[in-house]
């Protein structure tokens, strides 16, 4: 598990130029322990930029960010992207081994275990092109868990899938997460999905500020058909509607 601390974080693209564009504006929050945090907001509010900064792909302009494991060493990260990002010339198992630190019996066993957990135990020797989009995304999820990350970062992992496949994968994700005890930061523009999965929802507003930090206190496992989940989803949606009314430029995607 990880401790993620974000303190007064700003990100400006093209800083110091006439076309400078601030996408994150003095963001502060922290996440620790086995917590599932969703970051929700309209398109262009800086969700993916924030994830890229957390993962180290992007640098921040000012402020501070630290990601450590709960025992203080640098955190190991796992990343699930919008699309599976598999190397098409490597088999499923070799794709999972590509991101592992070691190539030994223990690691191979772990890779096979996570492939089994996502229901692809018999597909280890398949090429990615032989799998459906949903199966490829399951490989992406298994790959992220198999590196035994302290912090798992997920960037709209189900946004490219059809509704039924996405629902199945959400249920599977909840099961694996419950077993693996990871800290998860999950970006989505789907409030319904966020309520179903999260312990906390951080709402970003246009301009890259935190609008609200909502605690979701519902028992697990959750299913969309559960009335308590549906009620809370409606409540969170209403709050976002209020934000939308206050900031007219918010895109209709919330």
């Amino acid at each position: 598990m990880a401790v993620l601390t974000v303190n007064d974080l700003c990100k400006t693209f093209g800083a110091g130029t006439a076309r400078s564009n601030r996408v994150l504006d003095h963001i502060s929050f922290d996440v620790r322990g086995q917590t599932f945090v969703s970051i929700v907001g309209p398109s262009g509010c800086g969700k993916s930029t924030l994830l890229n900064i957390i993962s180290g792909v992007e640098t921040h302009t000012s402020g501070a960010i630290s990601v450590t494991s709960d025992d203080g060493r640098p955190a190991r990260l796992g990343y699930v992207f919008q699309d599976p990002r598999l190397l098409p010339w490597r088999t499923v198992r070799k794709n999972m081994m590509y991101v592992q630190d070691k190539d030994d019996e223990v690691t191979r066993g772990r890779v096979d275990r996570y492939l089994d957990m996502v229901g692809l135990g018999k597909h280890g020797d398949f090429w990615p092109g032989q799998l459906s989009g949903g199966m490829q995304q399951r490989v992406g999820i298994a790959r992220a868990f198999a590196v035994e990350p302290d912090l798992l970062i997920m960037d709209e992992p189900f946004s490219h899938l059809d509704a039924i496949t996405a629902r199945g994968l959400r249920a599977q994700l909840q099961d694996i997460w419950a077993q693996s005890k990871k800290t998860v930061v999950f970006v989505t523009h789907d409030v319904v999905e966020a309520v179903e999965l999260s312990d906390r929802i951080i709402v970003l507003q246009p301009g890259g500020r935190i609008y609200e930090d909502i605690t979701i206190d519902l028992p697990r496992p959750r299913r969309q058909s559960d009335p308590a989940v549906a009620t809370l989803q409606a409540e969170v949606l209403a709050r976002l509607e209020k934000m939308k009314a206050m900031t007219p430029q918010v895109a209709a995607s919330v």
Binding site: S55, G56, V57, L77, G78, Y79, F81, D83, R85, L87, R90, Y98, V99, V147, I153
Partner: peptide, 19 residues
Amino acid sequence: DLRDMSSSYGVPLGRRVRD
């Protein structure tokens, strides 16, 4: 995308070039 994925997971340079 694949290069970013490799960076996110901290895949060593030699393995990135080879694989």
